[in-house]
Design a protein around this nucleic acid. Structure first.
Lengths: 171, 171
DNA sequence: AATGAAATCGACCAGCA
DNA sequence: TGCTGGTCGATTTCATT
């Protein structure tokens, strides 16, 4: 059995509950969290601080609505690369530097990268795809236009199965 | 010319700079932001509050590292649906209810949905795909396994082109 | 819309279980 | 090591311009 203790950094159920609450909404007051967990405010603060120090919380960020900035168009672009050229790491980073590209995934299979991009106008979309194609080592691209997207603020901690939760707590 | 005034809610350059800073890191102190913009702390606070009220900032959230919870596997699943069944909206929402599914995009083209999921084990991945296939109206799925992902905390406000910024400010 | 003062809340410290 | 209560400093709010 692989030792996963270090990975989970001895998270307990209380930590998980805190993570769920502040991943959904960091504006909950310490007091609200403390009351729900029957703890003092200091104790909650102390745990949050530790979660940040350990890198379990990577940061706290404002969630900006893309539509409010006119970013109405979302594209999902499949990218294949010519495998002689450099390392995937480099190409992934180069994709991220293209204005409008927000997420890049390096995948197994026929498609090598999947990039998710947001732009305001068709001109910007054209420009973005041109910039992607211009990257050294990129072979071919194929883009899908997004009509609607579904999200929530619970992607990580609040989206575990019961089994997944136990896997963390039992380590 | 379409009137985009309402969409951008009269954002000015100062608002954009604030958004860039707090989208990257909400832990910057009011004082730091105020100094960079030559404003009082209250003025910055007032603008942030307004940005929240107007929905431009949808919320403030803790960014939890999936790896810290053992969510080592990321899958991108292309889903096609049988078009007799209900509305896409319903299927998108149902996809989101599957434990592990974090983002869903409804797209134009041969593929109808793209789902991005995170799980800890192969068993969970199997289970997840079974749950997706079991949704009424879903025809076929095809999954890619993610080897590496690239992100930053500047997906929206900090990722605009110069032209994109002007489009907002000139409205 | 921005300011400064007053109230409230979060961050840190020393001591304790 | 993790928690408590108290203090200090930062943030939020409010009256005013």
């Amino acid at each position: 059995m692989i030792d996963r203790t270090k990975t989970f950094d001895n998270l307990d159920g209380t930590d998980l509950e805190i993570l769920e609450m502040i991943e959904a909404d960091f504006d909950v007051s310490l007091e609200t969290v403390a009351q729900k967990l029957d703890l003092s405010k200091s104790a909650v603060h102390y745990r949050v601080k530790k979660l940040k120090e350990n890198g379990i919380i990577r940061g706290v960020t404002a969630d900006v609505d893309p539509l409010a900035l006119g970013l109405e168009m979302v594209a999902i672009t499949d990218v294949s690369v010519s495998h002689e050229e450099g390392y995937s790491e480099d190409i992934g980073k180069k994709l991220m530097t293209v204005s409008g590209v927000g997420e890049v995934y390096y995948t197994m299979g026929d498609i090598d990268f999947v990039a998710i991009s947001r732009v305001q106008t068709r001109d910007q979309l054209n420009d973005l795809i041109e910039r992607i194609v211009a990257i050294d080592g990129i072979n071919e691209t194929s883009s899908k236009f997004v009509m609607e997207e579904f999200h929530d603020n619970q992607n990580v901690s609040g989206n575990l199965t019961q089994v997944g939760r136990e896997l963390i707590l039992d380590s």
